[in-house]
Structure formats: C-alpha cells, structure tokens
Simulated assay, not measured.
Amino acid sequence: MTHPEHGGAARPDAHDDGRYGEDVFPPGQAGEDDRIDLGALAYDETTLARLTHLGAGPGWRCLDIGAGTGTVARGLLHRAGVRSVLAVDRDVRFLAARPTPGLTALEADVTDPAFDPGRFDLVHARFVLMHLPGHEELIGRLSGLLTPGGVLVLGDAIDLTTATAPPNPYTRVMGAMWQGLRDTIGTDISWVPRYPALLRRAGLASVGAEIHVPPLLPGSPVSRFWAETWDRARDAILATGQVDGAAIDEAKAYLDSDDCAALSAGMITAWGRRAGGRDRAPR
C-alpha cells in the first residue's frame, strides 16, 4: 500500500502496479507448486469441511477461483462427490499437470469485467481477493454467478501479529512481509474482517463466518509454508527496511524450534447464500 513517491515521502494509499504470480510468487519458479501444497495441507481440511457442511455434494456444479494446484477442486470431486468443478486461475500449469475426471481448468482473470463462466451451485475463492483491487465490486459480481439457492464461500488471511502480540522473530518478519506484499502487489488484508457485512451488502442471506488458526509447530505444513513464502518474497520484505536478511533467517530457525510461541495468520471463511431455488439446508 505504500511506496516512495518520485523524490518524495511514502504515500499510505498507493502501491506499485505489481501482481501476484508475476512480481511475487511466479508459478514458473521452482518449487512454487510445493509451497502452494503446503498451504493446502494447513487449510484444506477446514475448507472442505465447511463446503460440505454448506451442502456441496452430488449434483452440484462448482466454481473454484484461484484454484492453484487444484487440491480443493479435487477434494470437492473425490470427497464431496460434486458433479463438476470449473477450476479457474490466471496460470493453469499446475492444474493441467494433474488432470482429474470432472475437473475442467480455465485460464482466466477474474478481475476482467467480461469474466462470466456460467452459473454455479457453489462459487469458492481462497486467498485470492486479498491480492486484488476492487474487492467489494468483485464480491458482488461473484454472487451473480450463483444459481438460486447457491452459496458463495470466500476465504482470506487475518493477521494476528498485531501491535499487542508479543514481539519475536516470527512477528517481526510477518509484519514486514505484509507490508512488503502491500507495497509490491497491493495485498491488503485490513478489510477482511468486513467479509460478513460485504456478503450481506451483495444481497446474500444466511451469512456466516469462522476463523481457523493452524498451530505453528516445528516441521508443520503451515510453518514450512511461511518459511517458503518468506524466501520467495524476500526482496519485497527487505525493501520495507523493517528487517534484514539475518532477521528472516532467524525467523525461519525460530519456526523450526521448540522455542516458537506465536500465532500463525488465521484464515477467515465467510459465506452467504443466494435466495430462491430448492431447499439446500446444510448437511
């Protein structure tokens, strides 16, 4: 969100015109699919439990936005038994590498006003909108892709390394990471707690939300995910001037030690249902 003006001070409401997957976390970088899968190991159980509880199951046509390596899409097919999943990403190389019956990969940009792939019983996006501008308008457009009675489920990060959190190597680097991503690609999680209100404003009913915080334990998927994320975002983190390379290395060692006593970023999952259609009570 901040970047130096030409010859001036930082402006708090501006960021460089970078994009996720281009300026940071490019899919062509070796090991990026493994990093994404570590995040999936940390969060998929919670996501799939919520989707199935909301009714996702046989007969449902689903849209998974920012599908990454396709773990949620395949989980919907194999575990929930949905009819089909359209998995959308701006780069579908990881989806194409793991073809699955019932899963169709679509290379598209959800921010394109012309994006209109059809109508679905479930529209899901996780860790996507936090990286995009115009989130309120986008939520409205995604709700318009629902069939009557369909459900929109959105997940994003909530930062728990606040000013009141005990300072440690992890919290220092996490704070610099969020600032660096904001400066570089516009990542903004400050609005994420407003998800329930934004879903209601989009005209959806039966709105709910929950937060999952996976434990930071040595060698755990989420701890390895953050270490890999810091490595790939190192330039953006260092550019903030808040930490140096030694601090990043110290934080990685801290995550892998028994001394680690910190809260990972939480994932909020929020949902709302479009009115009409047949009864689709949660299972």
Rank of each mutant, 00 (worst) to 15 (best):
G175V: 00
G175Q: 08
A176R: 01
A176D: 00
M177H: 12
M177W: 11
W178L: 14
W178E: 08
Q179N: 15
Q179T: 15
G180E: 01
L181S: 08
L181Y: 01
R182A: 15
R182F: 10
R182M: 13
R182P: 07
D183V: 08
T184E: 13
I185W: 01
I185L: 07
I185E: 02
G186D: 08
T187F: 03
T187W: 05
T187D: 03
T187H: 06
T187P: 03
D188T: 03
D188E: 07
I189C: 01
S190E: 15
V192D: 09
V192C: 06
P193A: 08
P193Q: 09
R194A: 15
R194E: 15
R194G: 14
Y195C: 12
P196D: 02
P196I: 01
P196A: 07
A197H: 12
A197W: 09
A197D: 15
L198S: 13
L198E: 15
L198F: 10
L198Q: 14
L199M: 00
L199F: 01
L199S: 07
R200T: 12
R200S: 10
R200E: 14
R200C: 04
R201Q: 14
R201I: 06
R201D: 15
A202M: 02
A202W: 00
A202P: 00
G203F: 05
G203H: 03
G203V: 09
L204F: 01
L204N: 02
L204I: 04
S206D: 13
S206K: 05
S206Q: 11
S206M: 07
V207C: 06
V207A: 05
V207Q: 01
G208N: 00
G208V: 03
G208K: 00
G208Q: 04
A209K: 06
E210R: 13
E210I: 09
H212E: 14
H212F: 13
H212R: 10
P214R: 08
P214W: 06
P215A: 04
L217S: 14
P218E: 09
P218I: 10
G219S: 08
S220W: 03
P221Q: 10
P221H: 11
S223T: 13
R224K: 13
R224D: 13
R224E: 14
R224P: 06
F225G: 04
W226H: 12
W226N: 12
A227S: 15
A227C: 11
E228N: 12
E228W: 09
E228Q: 14
T229C: 05
T229V: 07
W230E: 04
W230N: 05
W230A: 06
W230M: 08
W230V: 07
D231V: 07
D231T: 00
D231G: 00
D231S: 05
R232W: 04
A233C: 11
A233P: 02
A233F: 05
D235Q: 13
A236P: 01
I237M: 05
I237W: 01
I237L: 04
I237S: 00
A239P: 02
G241Q: 08
G241I: 08
Q242R: 12
V243M: 04
V243I: 04
V243E: 00
